[in-house]
Nucleic acid binder design. Sequence first.
DNA 1: CTGCCGAATGGTAATAGTTACCGTCCGGTG
DNA 2: CACCGGACGGTAACTATTACCATTCGGCAG
Lengths: 181, 181
Amino acid sequence: MHSKARRDRVREFEELCRRQGLPLTVQRRTILEAVLAREDHPTAEQIFNAVRGRLAGVSRTTVYRVLDTLFRVGVINRICHPGAAARFDAKVHQHHHLVCLHCDKILDLENAKLNDLALPVIDTAGFDIDEYHIHFRGTCPDCLRKLKRSTGQGRTKSAKRKVSKTGTSRVRLSEDRRRKP
Amino acid sequence: MHSKARRDRVREFEELCRRQGLPLTVQRRTILEAVLAREDHPTAEQIFNAVRGRLAGVSRTTVYRVLDTLFRVGVINRICHPGAAARFDAKVHQHHHLVCLHCDKILDLENAKLNDLALPVIDTAGFDIDEYHIHFRGTCPDCLRKLKRSTGQGRTKSAKRKVSKTGTSRVRLSEDRRRKP
DNA sequence: CTGCCGAATGGTAATAGTTACCGTCCGGTG
DNA sequence: CACCGGACGGTAACTATTACCATTCGGCAG
């Protein structure tokens, strides 16, 4: 990410902190910058090593905590389904997954229509592709219920369009990227 | 999975073992059956607990080892990218991933065409979907090179059709599901 | 500018998941 | 039935992550 975009992202983060009453700390800013500066998908450990130089005496704990905060606030992304142990599955044929961002539940989604999508032509960067599967991320019914009970109205600020049960629909990114609310 | 399908899968596994010169052990059979018997996505620990009763004195280590073997042979699936630490990503907009099954490398795949697919109508089991992203799994260029060097011809028995650079193509599941060859 | 308060940090200890290692045992074959 | 290489069992070690708690800091009222 080039420097202007990075600055914008840091600003965006500062704005979000103010709105949510989160203190702005050097650690948070530095760690965010470290993630933004990379083009790959660093682990917490790699970020820790990257910031040691600029933040004398940072704690590994802080790095983990801040990365989690950044993710919950929505300025960075976390991939590969947080803190999970490997899971095994008897299904080896192509199928897809519904992942709950609140409780880490994983459900299978078996739908032949998803298996043979006419995917657009893409540049796979030299990868030899064996298969694809689609991860749908969202909130499971149980967590929806819990959220509704505790907030009276569930998640707000959501501009998503759900996959409806009638008519073809498109799945969109939600505006609300806060996790573990 | 119903019992007939399970028996078939066990047979298939036995056949694969014979072909690949892998000894057939009680542990392998029992652990495979335990995975096949479940409808969810058990962790190694859960499988361990499930087989303790029927395999007095199984070692946790064996469970991990056998699960890995079953996965490499291709009779079970492993989801959520093996043994990985959580990875972070500055990209919060929608994008997709190329995952190398050999070295766990993850590359971003940014392609607007993939972001707004007219996905078919699906039953999401009550999930409130925020987003989707597509995981393409395969072999990265580096590993392809290494494989070519070591075998003289790379992976065999593959009936896959790659995502080509010209014309719309469909990604298919490969016939060859062996990992870490 | 000063002080207060609650939240953030640092450091250590603990935990979960997984792997390495090594001596022993077993499946497959002659 | 004996042999051999690979599989197993058990423990120790390792990696990634979290809990806990005393200390410090950011944001705000005075």
